[in-house]
Design a protein around this nucleic acid. Structure first.
Lengths: 254, 254
DNA sequence: GATTGACTTTGACGTTGCGTAAAGGTGTAT
DNA sequence: ATACACCTTTACGCAACGTCAAAGTCAATC
């Protein structure tokens, strides 16, 4: 049985454009071109198309499908396992989004506009997510996965009062840091107060405290551009100063 | 505090390009342009960007975000509820994909290439999925959700022998249909045999049988281009013929 | 004051998987 | 002869930017 584009398209439930595109990207070529320039497909193309569409249904990219269907020696199972991991990650991400959306709906219901506090909340969440994306691997290597997940979970479960409190403490950290910076001594009273406030702030995110982790985080504030920018915003060098203060406070060097 | 693109970009953790793009699509304009043509952002822009990024994190499209942040009267909660539904649907789809991938991995493991039977399986699955996408709403209105879900579940749980059997019966349906078509009478012996075989085939997909549903499905074979193409492939008019035969077999008119 | 390096601008193409004309040729039934 | 349904290639459009490229600006350094 031979098919023109439309015939095959109807049979397979795709558009003729799709078949032309598959021809274009060398993923499925017709058996031959007839005298009028028409694409003619045969049985083996039908079979191949079935394969292609099957993988497509699984969400595999056409690029990957190309590898799978062209290289017969290609390890399809391995490709699928890899793809499976991606799907799992995607679903996890979706679950996070859903939790976030649910919470936001709960927060906004009854109030038409968001308060500053809520805006800040979203920002914090974003920072965590961004951080996870950019430095997820590094951080998850330094700390354990549980630590990170627990931190995220703790943020998710914060009450409104918690948010208020954590916002307040964060402000205090920055103010104290600014004062201490003028003073110039990380080991001084103000510097150590800033480190202590920072620990207090931290405990809204972490479920358990260790001096090592605290010192490590402080070092990250300097190494990680994002955090550095945040603490350096008022005074350049603020991140380094805070790190030094925390290292003295914890008695650690990172 | 005033920011240039990069400054604001660093603060917010996005790229400068993103900010220029947001300017371009009128979603976030700078406060002013300085004498050198530089974009200068102020505090209110920072706040607005936070809002934008927050919604973006939730997976809302920039188009929708635009509506949310520009029209203050816009019902953000309703938009989020709608978005939530989309996320749920997406996750459901993901779960289906995952189940499918898992099964495929299990099937292919140990065998390097897929057998024809398996190819067919994938194709059937694809047809079901496609059908669900294109006619999901219609069909789910005609039949109950449970009917559809059970059908899909039944397909998922078929054994290899089932596949063989159902493939065989499908072939028989088509052959008998072809013979009956030559004969010309849907009410004749062959036409009624085709209808009976079709019922037998159907029972591999449905968990319970009703004449009404069978007759309705037969009508759908004519109304639905995809199915029509399938049964019309050998003989144009095949879908209508089968419908008539089934309507006589069930004693229904659809 | 000239150079360097880090910033800024606009413009424009690339990404993914096709949808959707547009402009023209082909096949067949009436 | 004409209509109509098919086929072809070419090419823009979509979302949300990434990534050069070419050219101007700013602050610091030689």
């Amino acid at each position: 049985m031979e098919y023109t584009v439309q015939k095959l398209a109807n049979l397979a439930g795709v558009s003729a454009r799709t078949l032309r595109y598959y021809d274009e990207i060398d993923i499925l070529k017709p058996t031959r071109i007839n005298s009028s320039g028409y694409r003619i497909y045969g049985q083996s193309e039908v079979d191949k198309l079935q394969q292609i569409l099957f993988y497509r249904e699984l969400g595999v990219s056409l690029d990957s499908i190309k590898e799978i269907v062209t290289a017969s020696s290609f390890d399809g199972a391995a490709a699928l396992r890899e793809h499976r991991e991606k799907l799992l990650a995607k679903r996890k991400q979706l679950d996070l989004l859903l939790a976030n959306v649910d919470k936001t709906i709960a927060l906004t219901e009854g109030r038409t506009n968001m308060t500053d506090k809520e805006k800040f909340t979203g920002f914090k969440q974003k920072m965590i997510d961004d951080n996870e994306k950019k430095y997820g691997e590094e951080i998850r290597q330094k700390y354990s996965n549980e630590t990170i997940d627990q931190s995220n979970a703790k943020v998710m479960n914060m009450t409104e009062e918690d948010y208020e409190a954590v916002t307040n403490i964060e402000k205090q950290v920055l103010e104290t840091l600014a004062q201490a910076f003028e003073n110039g001594d990380p080991a001084g009273e103000l510097g150590q107060k800033a480190a202590e406030l920072h620990k207090k702030w931290l405990m809204y995110y972490w479920s358990e405290y260790s001096k090592e982790a605290h010192a490590g985080l402080a070092q990250m504030y300097v190494d990680d551009e994002r955090f550095k920018a945040y603490y350096d915003e008022k005074q350049p060098g603020g991140a380094e100063f805070l790190r030094d203060a925390i290292h003295i406070y914890t008695g650690m060097k990172g």
